[in-house]
Design a protein around this nucleic acid. Structure first.
Lengths: 194, 194
DNA sequence: TCATATCGAATGAACGTTCAATCTAGAGCA
DNA sequence: TGCTCTAGATTGAACGTTCATTCGATATGA
């Protein structure tokens, strides 16, 4: 990488993502991150306190890009069923278009690393998402289920499917995709006769 | 552990599960497995070829107990909506009742370990599950979606919820549970007007 | 007596991290 | 412009530790 000074940190982060997505946290020695980034091992410690710090920084970085992606296109401007569909498809497409990020996120969130959920709560895009969901609950469109339940029935499904797609055991075309997004809507929607 | 000869292998597996659920694969040195099992480090290599082999054996063991648990109670004997509900609740309860196994499974399946899906296909209980689902599709009860999609919309949701419950950020009572199981059914069910 | 089980110290490789030395670019100045 | 000075950037060899695995010695039981 012939990148110049300012983005050396960025280069290191990108390389780390590459390597971890392929070999996992512990299959990714700092020495390899250095070599593949075209820098010395020592300099990494100029930008990051430790390997854990590097990984955590990468997690925050990806999570921020993810939340921006799922709330892209101002879904708030769309009416009820469509804005949820929009967000769901945004999420699914982010995962499929960013397999390395997806693999990394899943590995991180299922590892015994300490998670700091306070960051998530402070993310602006997450706040927009929560507000939108709350308004759909208040309007009686979707069921008043706990947030984690709503999440698993919708975005949780999206990442699960994306993982299958990344592993090559599944290939949804546009129609099947929208049908599945629809299935998620149906799972959380209030029935009119109820 | 004062267990006698025959189940020394079993003791090692159980200890490994304990430690990995708490500290992860790489926070669990063989020396610690040995000490906590009350055996020498060397003997582990009498029962397992390597650390990877030990972990894979543990995975297969847990997966077999899992598939037996979800197909417990002969769900085939129940009519359509109930047998799915039965299986879903079986899965959810297995996860919640076995947090260590759940954490291990998720860690393993999201790690870069090579997965051998051929084992899953040869599992009798899995075969029963697949047959049951196929018959529900043929009967027109549920949509003819690809298996991974059906999985994510149902059992995938169950494990996601169980993880939240294990982390203490969610506590579903019996009513909420059945409501959620119902939401999963609704997601994959064919609509009558269709 | 022999095969199997068990021990635990020893081995050697891999890894995260440190640090003294070197380089670089820009500011200050004449 | 040309020179010096300095702070930050960068290097990579070295350090100390941890860990998976080995193996010769010993115990056990049939």
């Amino acid at each position: 990488m012939e990148t110049t000074v300012a983005d050396k940190r960025t280069t290191i982060l990108a390389t780390t993502l590459d390597l971890i997505a392929e070999n996992g946290f512990h299959g990714t020695p700092m020495s390899q991150v250095a070599k593949r980034s075209g820098v010395s091992a020592g300099i990494i410690y100029h930008y990051f306190e430790s390997k854990d710090d590097l990984i955590e920084a990468l997690y925050r970085d990806i999570k921020a890009r993810w939340s921006a992606a799922i709330m892209a296109g101002t879904p708030e401007a769309l009416p009820y069923p469509e804005h949820l569909q929009q967000i769901w498809l945004n999420a699914y497409r982010f995962y499929v278009a960013h397999p390395q990020e997806t693999v990394f996120l899943e590995q991180y969130e299922n590892s015994p690393y300490p998670h700091d959920w306070s960051n998530v709560a402070q993310d602006d895009n997450m706040a927009r998402l929560f507000a939108l969901i709350q308004s759909d609950i208040d309007a009686g469109y979707i069921r008043a289920l706990p947030l984690p339940v709503l999440h698993e029935l919708t975005l949780g499904v999206a990442i699960g499917l994306a993982k299958h797609q990344i592993n090559g055991v599944l290939d949804l075309d546009e129609a099947a995709l929208e049908q599945t997004a629809d299935a998620c809507r149906r799972a959380i929607e209030r029935e009119t006769y109820d």
